[in-house]
Amino acid sequence: MQELIVILVDGLVFSSYLFMVAVGLTVIFGVMKILNVTHGSFYAFGAYMSATLIGAYYSTDWPEFGGFLAIFAAALVVGVFFGIVLERGLLRFLYHRDEHIIVLATFAMFLVLEDVLLIIWGTDPYFAFEPMTLLGSVDIVEMTFDVYSLTLICLAVVVGLGLWLGLTKTKWGKLLLAVIFDREVSQAMGINVTVVFTVTFVIGAIMGALGGAYIAPTISVNPGIGVEVIVLAFAVVVIGGMGSIPGAMIGALLVGISRAAAVHKFPEIELFVIYAIMAVVLSIRPEGLFAPAQARKI
């Protein structure tokens, strides 16, 4: 019983983390049909920027809780900057090309950004534990969990709900859905698809950066975190159905809880349980759990 609860809590925390990194990827794919490998860079830059800003903040004697603002500021700065630069500076020249080529271009950009990261921050790890120690820990069934990790669950719920409401209830969201449904028709209807693309990409980038920025206080921020995250996020998005926000949530839960279970019960399969789930889901539902199947008119 105790183990079950531990698996559940760990699983939920990990799922929230997965959702945070996957949701930006799925939003970008849903609207732009681009599988964006640089998402891993957004995450990594978000984490580094967050660690740096947190460090800078706590070297002042401003109120302790303000440190949380540094996290969100980091995500915004990184997301807006890279989102605009990449979409306007690179991707828009490739929209007419094959989808594989666009994936490769983002892969190339990812390689470039990996080194840019090293040039800026070097190879030594960064730590920014202050926000985590600030929130302390809590005991659940005689097991100690840190409160900061639990707030990740809240953040994921808020982000998920926010995106969902934004998409279904606002004018902007409806425009987006129109573009998702039919790019050409929306263009004909006078929707400025160019702007929609840029804004979507920036939102996706902020999500990726926020994932990294928020997780930064709980990890040692070091080179290579972008690689790990991109592969995980792909798996989650593919399982859930590419472009689907509820899909990303279910995918994240499925992967997060299975992995937590594997870590506690069968540590030797921990690493590939995610891909095994992905392979199984895809072989049953080729388009992922939540993506609508598309018929072809002949």
Binding site: L90, L104, A105, F107, A108, M109, F110, L111, V112, L113, E114, D115, V116, I119
Partner: peptide
């Protein structure tokens, strides 16, 4: 910067 060069040439 070897990854930078690799990625840059791919781009």
């Amino acid at each position: 910067v070897w990854q930078f060069i690799l990625g840059g040439s791919l781009l």
